[in-house]
């Protein structure tokens, strides 16, 4: 039995030791926002946050994350409000077919969390270089991540001044 906390909710399922985390999330827990796009740990469509750190869930055994915290794309929206990254991807046409999008969002979320200082375009490009996209050419993804960073800052400013 593998027990995890996923998107703040405790869940468990019985799986074989060889079950990969991506399939545990998709098949056993029914959260299909996490996608699988390759078999060589190359594409990043399966990116989730494991204890807050973005990892490729196709290259981790489900059994190895026993008791850990996982966050997937389904956990981004809070109380009906889109995460600023989701909103920014929408506003800036940061997605087309949508298949790489959940992975991009999770990697970007970790980037914004772990980089309190200045972020420039090159930083964002480096940070998302483990996530492949075939549709967008990355331009609008980078734009969206930087826009979300601005929005988060503004929100923090508002909290501080209020």
């Amino acid at each position: 039995m593998v027990r995890v906390t996923i998107n703040k909710e405790p869940r468990e399922a019985l799986v074989e030791p060889r079950t990969l985390l991506a399939y545990f999330i998709r098949d056993a827990l029914g959260l299909t926002g996490t996608h699988v796009g390759c078999d060589t740990t190359s594409c990043g469509a399966c990116t989730v946050l494991l204890d807050g750190v973005p990892v490729k869930s196709c290259t981790i055994l489900a059994i190895a994350v026993q008791g850990h915290e996982i966050e997937t794309v389904e956990g981004l929206e809070q109380e009906g409000v889109l995460h600023p990254l989701q909103q920014a991807f929408w506003d800036n046409h940061g997605l087309q077919c949508g298949f790489c999008t959940p992975g991009m969002l999770m990697t970007s979320k970790a980037l914004l969390q772990s980089s309190p200082g200045e972020l420039n375009e090159a930083d964002v490009r480096r940070a998302i270089s483990g996530n492949l996209c075939r549709c967008t050419g990355y331009v609008n993804i980078v734009k969206a991540v930087l826009a979300a960073r601005e929005r988060l800052r503004e929100a923090q400013e508002e909290v501080r001044t209020s």
Partner: peptide, 11 residues
Amino acid sequence: GHIADPLVRNR
């Protein structure tokens, strides 16, 4: 920073 990609480096 040159190893594999950022996600692989996290693991």
